[in-house]
Amino acid sequence: MSEFFMYIAELFAAPFFVRALIVGTLVSLCSSLLGVSLVLKRYSMIGTGLSNVSFGCVTVAVALNIAPLYISIPVVVASSFLLLRISDNSKIKGDSAIAMISSGAISIGVMAVYLTSGVTNDVCGYMFGSVFSLTQSDMVFSAALSVVVIIMFVIFYNRIFAVTFDENFARATGTNAGRYNAVIALLTASTIVVGMKMMGTLLISSLIIFPALTSMRLFKSFKIVVVCSGFLSVFCFFIGMALTVIFEAPAGASVVIAHIAFFLIFSAVSALKKIRKRSIEINE
């Protein structure tokens, strides 16, 4: 037993582990806060779409020998704006636009890999996430961006609620809905670029979708749903990390499995509540 504690103590002394915990907590928080709005605006798939774009950027950057973030940040932000724009104009619907952009980006990425070296470790890391390979500068950058996203979210919270709940009303009564949709797009793009390094292309959208959907099983107030999503997301991240440390399970997948477990628990509680309510009504 003491060996186990020694192991844990060693982990907490290791810089890579501490970095993973700090960035992981912040990214989990960002994605879950934004997730509530994105899920309700029917943009659940935007996480997958943008992270595929990010994957494409990384492969191209590796091929060109440029630091990946310099390409992926501007391109992902631009795609995020484009996706929201396309949906507004509604010639191409939101879901097909996302599907188009993400499959296109993956193809470009795969082509870039084929034309250069073949699958590299870096690319593999971006596909499946590598929470323990964050460098010191990665951590500083990710932490700073996450803190900015969280502060912006809090400042714009009331406006984000207004444009999410009823965009026409917000627009009609003098709120610049386009601007706040752009804020949501920008914050989402930032979160995904940072979160991808941790969770990988394949798992990032679960960080956006699960906390919101799980909270919505039980709570009926927007504010409570947002707060609960934040807590759940951080909590599930810690559970995932614990699974990784104890069983040496893959980090990204462990976090998602923790989310699935909570979703099932919340669904069950919600179903029980409904049954109880119905039986009370019948008795009355």
């Binding site: 309700l40 029917r42 009331n158 609620f161 709940f165 009823d166 917000a170 909270s215 107030s221 927007f222």
Partner: peptide, 19 residues
């Protein structure tokens, strides 16, 4: 215009009118 499953209380909805 809001969807069926939108979590919002009556107070939150009306408060958005003050924006």
């Amino acid at each position: 215009a809001a969807q069926r499953d939108f979590p919002a209380t009556v107070f939150e909805v009306v408060l958005s009118g003050r924006l």
